[in-house]
Amino acid sequence: MKQPQPAAIGSATLYIVPTPIGNLSDITLRALEVLKQVDLIAAEDTRHTGLLLQHFAINARLFALHDHNEQQKAELLLARLQQGQNIALVSDAGTPLINDPGYHLVQQCRAAGVRVVPLPGACAAITALCAAGLPSDRFCYEGFLPAKGKGRKDRLQALASESRTLIFYESPHRLLESLQDMVTVWGAQRHVVLARELTKTWESIYGAPVAELLEWVQQDEMRRRGEMVLIVEGYQAPTEVLPPEALRTLALLQQELPLKRAAALTAEIHAVKKNALYQYALTQQNG
């Protein structure tokens, strides 16, 4: 078996370099070689990346590239690349551009014909998906849900009939509100996995119907701390055949009542499952 060779660094190349999401041992040998050899490292937070480089004894020039300055600074970095310099792009953790800065720089490089080389590596979304126990052959990455309640509910409503597994990032101070809105919009039974502090000492992966997950999170403040990923079961069409009488009742009650209440009353009248009625109505609303 041949021994691996050091990464060959070309000229005038932008390298997309993933960094660990928690465990520093997860950085790849190729990533280390690239970071050692490039002329410049564009970092989301130079102080944070400086600690990573210090840990691996890498001396490199750092350049701040973050959400607030990327569109202005991308042209400067592009000019350096066109002069023959090599640049590595890193974020604070994980793969750059995945809910992190870098899109504008990569877009300009591609338009200008500058070589862009992506390295494989850590990504919290994919790491969580692999351990969630939900279908992974088809999935949809949605990033962070909107911060405002109405925007969040509108986004969840738009995704109500999405059959692919859904991936969200979430912040600790909005976790409870997001889970509650999922219960309100999707019903209590949609299965959700909360993956927290992946690769770190306090890693936790817990899945349950979303109403139960919300209750579980509320029981312990520690369960809503740290970096979080939510993996959500895709929409499943009801297998139960709903009686035409129940559907007529549901349609009539929806004209006067909120959907959740209309589904509950219809279920009680016709002895059918409330969640099946609720999901049916959501599907109708979304065409």
Rank of each mutant, 00 (worst) to 15 (best):
Y103I: 14
T249C: 15
N23Q: 09
Q72E: 13
Q254I: 00
L159K: 05
N23H: 09
T266K: 03
P209Q: 08
S178K: 02
E240W: 00
A132P: 06
R190I: 03
L40H: 05
R248W: 02
G22L: 05
G207D: 09
K73T: 08
L265S: 02
L76H: 07
L35G: 07
N86G: 11
R248K: 10
K148W: 00
E197K: 00
R174T: 05
L53K: 06
L129I: 03
E268R: 14
L65R: 10
H66M: 08
I205L: 13
G207C: 12
D181T: 04
A112T: 05
A128C: 06
F63W: 07
D92P: 06
A237H: 13
R110G: 00
A264E: 12
D181G: 01
L53M: 10
G287N: 15
I58Q: 01
Q5G: 04
A281T: 05
P6T: 03
K148S: 04
Y235Q: 09
L97Y: 12
E256C: 04
D26K: 07
P101S: 13
G226K: 10
A112W: 01
E170I: 09
L265Y: 08
D181E: 08
A57Q: 12
T266Y: 04
A124H: 06
P4E: 05
H191N: 12
A131V: 15
Q285M: 14
P258I: 01
Q285R: 15
H173T: 03
L282I: 06
L179D: 07
P118G: 11
P20C: 12
L156M: 04
V38W: 02
L77K: 08
K2Y: 06
V90M: 07
Q236W: 04
M228K: 13
Y235N: 05
R152F: 02
L77P: 07
M1T: 09
L175W: 04
E75D: 14
P4L: 11
E177K: 13
E233D: 10
P258L: 01
N59F: 00
E170V: 11
E268W: 02
V232N: 01
T95K: 11
L51F: 11
